[in-house]
């Protein structure tokens, strides 16, 4: 009461000298506003919580008819035939996983390489501009990667990379089936490579941040006993930040799994599972983007919502693990 009274005097100097009736009313209003603001922040914070629950619940309700009708069959069947009302998620899940694996295989080493360059090798003057340029790569909207991918990257793949792969690796017994088929340009590999470029800045940004948490005296000690730069990075920096780097990689994986627009443009959108990574395929998000707006209500829509629910669960698990690992590193850095 005492506190609030002084405060009202700050807000409105006259209030302190006016009649007790007015003062009581002003104080009451102030108290109400103070409590009201607090309640508003609590409610807003709970809305954030409700958003995630809302996503999970609404997708599950929408997907229920498909789960009920197809049962576990939905997860293992690669059939996708709207006229026959037969739907299965296997082809989409397969495409999602394969494109993400290709993206990680290329995006992670390159992203880590850039992070090492920025923290250990780069002249201080260039550190900021190059760092910003890599972050801009993350800022470019995915639709732009899509239009660029279909007009430039796809023809490039078709004319040079795919014929080369078919001619060399395609002839190698044992792995040849991975590179079989005509060079179409569109396909799983093309989508995976575009994804690699898209996730690269995420890997770089987080690795750079966690590399910066390595105490200078650890690195100085290693240099002091004569270690080379490569040995310092390999034996001190990366082991020290392992959990954080893996967290960053998982975060990038979460992006790759859910990426929609860029993939839709270049993957070819064929609902089938092929051994060759040059053949056309699809992913969960590409299928939803392509078909949802025109889907008939009923099993078709429910099956697409079921795909969305599966994608949500997969990315939730990956992202939760990522955050958990990054939080573990923060605790370590805090000590």
């Amino acid at each position: 009461m005492e506190r609030a009274m002084t405060a009202s005097a700050i807000e409105n100097p006259q209030a302190a000298h006016s009649l007790p009736m007015d003062r009581a009313r002003a104080l009451g209003r102030l108290k109400l506003a103070d409590g009201g603001f607090r309640v508003m922040t609590v409610v807003s914070a709970l809305v954030v919580l409700a958003l995630l629950l809302g996503v999970a619940i609404s997708l599950f309700i929408g997907a229920w008819p498909a789960f009920q009708h197809f049962g576990l069959e939905f997860f293992v069947s690669d059939a996708w035939s709207p006229p026959k009302e037969r739907f299965g998620a296997a082809a989409a899940i397969y495409g999602t996983l394969v494109t993400s694996i290709i993206a990680m295989l290329i995006g992670v080493p390159v992203g880590l390489g850039i992070a090492v360059f920025l923290t250990e090798l780069c002249p201080p003057l260039l550190r900021r501009p190059i760092g910003v340029a890599i972050e801009l790569l993350a800022g470019i909207p995915s639709i732009i990667y899509g239009i660029w991918g279909v007009y430039y990257f796809k023809p490039f793949m078709q004319a040079y990379v795919q014929p080369f792969l078919i001619g060399t690796l395609g002839e190698v017994p044992g792995v040849g089936y991975l590179f079989a088929g005509p060079p179409l340009g569109y396909g799983v590999l093309t989508a995976g490579l575009v994804l690699a470029v898209m996730i690269l800045p995420f890997v770089t940004a987080i690795s750079r941040d966690v590399f910066d948490t390595v105490p200078a005296f650890l690195k100085e000690a290693a240099y002091g006993v004569g270690a080379t730069k490569f040995e310092v990075v390999g034996n001190i920096v990366i082991p020290y930040t392992r959990v954080g780097v893996i967290g960053g990689i998982m975060l990038a994986l979460g992006r790759a799994l859910g990426e929609t627009m860029a993939v839709t443009f270049v993957i070819g959108n064929a609902t089938k599972i092929s051994a060759s990574i040059l053949s056309q395929g699809t992913t969960i998000s590409a299928m939803i983007a392509n078909q949802f707006a025109d889907a008939d209500p009923g099993l078709f829509t429910a099956s697409l919502l079921a795909l969305g629910f599966i994608l949500f669960i997969i990315t939730f698990i990956v992202l939760a693990l990522a955050r958990w690992m990054l939080a573990a590193l923060q605790v370590k850095a805090g000590i």
Binding site: V55, L59, G258, T260, S285, L319
Partner: peptide
């Protein structure tokens, strides 16, 4: 924690949620 998950959740899933909602 939930906010961090939402921060990188696939945007197509958000689209489906708002479609339902």
């Amino acid at each position: 924690f939930i906010n961090d998950i939402l921060l990188s959740a696939p945007s197509i899933v958000v689209g489906l949620f708002i479609y339902q909602f």
